[in-house]
Amino acid sequence: MNELRIALSLFLLIVIALGVGYYLTEAELQRQRRVGLEEPQVSEPVRMPPPSGSSSREMQVRVFFCAPGATALGEGFLLSEERTVLQTGEPVFNARQIVDELIQGPEEEGAAIFRQDATIRQIFVLEDKTAVVDISRKTADSLAGGIRMELCAIHSITRSLVENLEEIDQVRFLVGGKQELTLSGHVSIGEPFL
C-alpha cells in the first residue's frame, strides 16, 4: 500500500515535471517567434557639410532631377533647378560640384534619386570629352529594384554634366572603380550615355 502511494506520487511528480517542461519550451518558442519579427534598426550615417566657398568666380548651373509621375523619356522626364557653384576652371572640380548638388536633392518638385549619404568615388574627364563617373557600390545598390531608379540616376547625372560643361559630351559610369554591366541589375552601362 505504502509502495503504491510512493509510486503514485513519483508518477505525479513526473507528470508535473513534463507539463512544466512542455509549457516552458512552448513559451520559449513563442518568444523566439515574436523576436524574429522585430527587425533591427540601422541608424543613418552623418554627412559631412559641404566645403565653404572661396573668392573664385561663381557660375550658374542647371541641375536635373527626375520629374514626378513622368513615364516617358524625353523632354518631360527631367526637371531642372538653378544652382550656383564655383567656377574653378577645372572641369573635374566643376563636375564634382554639380554632382554634389544633384545628390543633395531637389528643392522644388523634382524627385530625389540618391540618398543624401550617396558617394561618388571619383569623376574623371577624358580628352575625348567623356566624363567617367565612379559610383560607390553601396550607392548603386540603393537604386535596386527598378529600371526607373537606374534611368533617373543615369539621365540626371548625364544631362546635368553635358548641359553645363562644354568639356563633357558623354558620360560613362563605373561602379566601385570597375566597369560593371549595370548600376543595379537592369540598365546597361557598357556604353557611355550622351
Binding site: C66, P68, G69, A70, T71, A111, A112, I113, A144, G145, G146, I147, R148, M149, C152, H186
Partner: peptide
Amino acid sequence: LHLGRAPDETLRGALVY
C-alpha cells in the same frame, strides 16, 4: 517580368520597356 520602384510615389501602374 519585374516589379518597379520609382523615385517618386506618384508613379504607378505597369511600365513596359
